[in-house]
Design a protein around this nucleic acid. Sequence first.
DNA 1: TATTGTTATACTCTATAACTATA
DNA 2: TATAGTTATAGAGTATAACAATA
Lengths: 162, 162
Amino acid sequence: MRMRSTRAKPAPPAADSTAPRPVHLGPLREFVGYRLRRAQLSVLAGFELALRELGLSPGQLSVLMVIAHNEGLTQSDVCAALGIQRANFTPLLHDLEARGYAIREVLPADRRSNTLRLTLLGREAVARALALHERLEKRITRCLGATGRSQLIELLQKLEAL
Amino acid sequence: MRMRSTRAKPAPPAADSTAPRPVHLGPLREFVGYRLRRAQLSVLAGFELALRELGLSPGQLSVLMVIAHNEGLTQSDVCAALGIQRANFTPLLHDLEARGYAIREVLPADRRSNTLRLTLLGREAVARALALHERLEKRITRCLGATGRSQLIELLQKLEAL
DNA sequence: TATTGTTATACTCTATAACTATA
DNA sequence: TATAGTTATAGAGTATAACAATA
């Protein structure tokens, strides 16, 4: 048998010591939690890239969207819907208020509660954010296919109830 | 038409003011990033529940598994494979060393680098962790179905390359 | 000059306890 | 007594810059 025949493996790149060494992950490769974390990091990076000009974090945008679709909710309602601690919600909301996106108003029927609504500026920001975010979802669709993306959303939704 | 007929909707629970108010998420419902984050939180909670007795974080377990399947890797190799900053890896690794799970050894060929391997105790911990983790994956399979789980892993893997 | 591991530091998220004002 | 919002604080996880040892 002749050495270096045409069927031989291509020579490794001359023992390039700066090349990253290939690593076996073992069963980690099929840990759903591991795959979720890596995928979430990718999508998060995509989010920050797509929405950079607005300077909104995913959490902030989710709060704006919930208020937009449910004007008059209390802070506790928003926290319960999005799984945010009330204590962490306060500064987040105050920032949205400082930007002129949201308004807090004492609820007359229960003066302990604050009722939330968006300003016109806030609604414009949501509209702009949605348009920018659409590009990210398009990128995801190109990556997974339209049916793949739908399947993923459905599977993830089931997983929330684990 | 008769009121309160047998086909009428069941009466709402007497305006229970302590019940969480139902909330519309709007387009957020179909944000892949949002669904990823919520699903990841669920699985993370499941991980902590399943591996509580070992007291290993997902990051620590992933490091142990990579070392187990690639004994002799350097710290930088592990960091590159798992997307960890070298600066953050140092204390994480030192903790695994303090537990008696891993060993750092200067690589003679390049005395700047440390070569990593597991102790017997470390290999036992990985085996125990895998057994506990298997329960979590079984829970996930019950939630998604076996084919659903496989599809999810494949979709998430594609998404990493977004 | 460049790289490995390290330290220090900072920033974001998240979690808990305690306070206030209302109920 | 209990609840809504707030404050303070602490702990993860992650990011950057700078340093010593080594190449």
